[in-house]
Design a protein around this nucleic acid. Structure first.
Lengths: 234, 234
DNA sequence: CATTCGCATTTTGTATGCAATATGTATTTT
DNA sequence: AAAATACATATTGCATACAAAATGCGAATG
């Protein structure tokens, strides 16, 4: 879990920073600054950028710096088109193929996630939720589905950060519900029940979508129009 | 289409070599030899390797060379699990979102493909078929589906190379059928008929799978068992 | 006063040399 | 003779120096 060499450290730190929105979409990555920060020369750092680019964390532009990959309205739409299908497939396959040690890892991560729910920082919640889903991807073990799945998880983490933040009552409710779904997912996988797992994927995404919808399209502020100067007050 | 700088040239040549099986799965890429061949130093070539690795063309191993990504029985199974779903989604979205100039590009590629069918080398057929599907991916324009779709196309090209080779009668028949399906795909996309496009995806994969099945599991050679020494001939 | 052009500065890209790691081979040891 | 080990060779990884490209700024011009 703890990478020794500075290169893997740089990779991990950048990855985490991007997932938690510590580095905002569109922000550019300064080779000089970061190589100094991680105590490593530009050459290996640039290789880390290439790797991150391949996985969808950053975008590279010719003769221009690397940038944290963007998120737009379009991507949000595309996201909810692709996510249920891919995640449904992943969970089905996870239920069919999960190895015992992977199930143990999933349970351990879920335990940590629950701990983070009661008191940890939003950052930890998002990272542990991400890790939970990463493991389901490993369980499925289909190398053709993983690239898209991993790409989805990146933006899922970033979108989630909005509602893993200091939560209002509704937000906390949603998070608790998500945690319960995780438990049911673990149960379905343990029971090798592909059907149930697939159904849970849909459920899990519906919850996510509802939370995001209410975030993107809030109820509307209840404020009267201002009165024009010269107009008579009622 | 023609990349100027040696870096893009290296990227393109390696990509093509891998897709056409000119570089076999598992073959290792010699930094020294290739950098000499492409007339560029090891540093940028290593960056090309990172890029190719991110897209699934090669695998990188710590302190070991880069290798052309492997294909096994397992991957073939995973392939046919994932392909119909992803490709179905891609073609649906392509029908919904294709832009006129993309449709033109698709038609142009299909024309070239047909030309290559009558007389061109197997290599060209595979590359043009690959290009055809790449364009449908661009039409769909969903950044979350593309990573898996592109990964599938790599192995699709490599698997296809087996039956785009000097074809027997059955093989030629299959290729002609595939070309016809391409035309129907173009028609569905032009008509913005997502349903038809999705159905054609399934059809297209069934054809592929049948061809591969008959290649992987051939009819069986009709040869009698050899007689044991000392056994009496009938 | 806005715009454009040229120059200085910053940033990205590439080459090379050296360090670290892996690989192959010959020698020694049992 | 087989196995293990030490050494030589080859290959990969990293840092630095230099080249090329982009950016920002100021001056000149309309």
């Amino acid at each position: 879990m703890a990478p020794r060499n500075p290169k893997d450290t740089a990779y991990d730190r950048l990855k985490t920073a991007i997932l938690t929105l510590e580095m905002r979409p569109g922000a550019d990555l300064d080779e000089a600054r970061l190589s100094a920060e991680f105590g490593l020369s530009r050459t290996p750092l640039r290789e880390v950028f290439r790797r991150l680019a391949g996985e969808g964390y950053v975008d590279l532009r010719q003769n221009r710096g690397a940038r944290v990959s963007e998120m737009s309205h379009t991507t949000l739409r595309d996201f909810f088109l692709a996510a249920p299908m891919i995640y449904g497939a992943i969970l089905r396959l996870a239920a069919e193929n999960a190895k015992p040690e992977q199930i143990d890892a999933l349970k351990a991560t879920q335990a940590q996630f629950r701990t983070a729910l009661s008191g940890g920082p939003a950052r930890d919640r998002a990272i542990l939720n991400n890790r939970f889903h990463e493991i389901t991807g490993e369980m499925a073990g289909n190398i053709y589905l993983l690239p898209s799945f991993r790409r989805l998880l990146i933006d899922h983490a970033r979108i989630s950060m909005t509602f893993y933040r200091p939560a209002d009552a509704d937000g906390a409710q949603g998070i608790a519900e998500a945690a319960d779904q995780h438990d049911r997912i673990i149960a379905a996988i343990t029971a090798r029940d592909a059907e149930a797992a697939g159904a849970l994927a849909t459920e899990h995404w519906n919850l996510s979508r509802n939370r995001i919808e209410s975030f993107v399209m809030p109820g509307g502020l209840e404020m009267p129009l201002g009165t024009l100067p010269g107009a008579r007050s009622a």
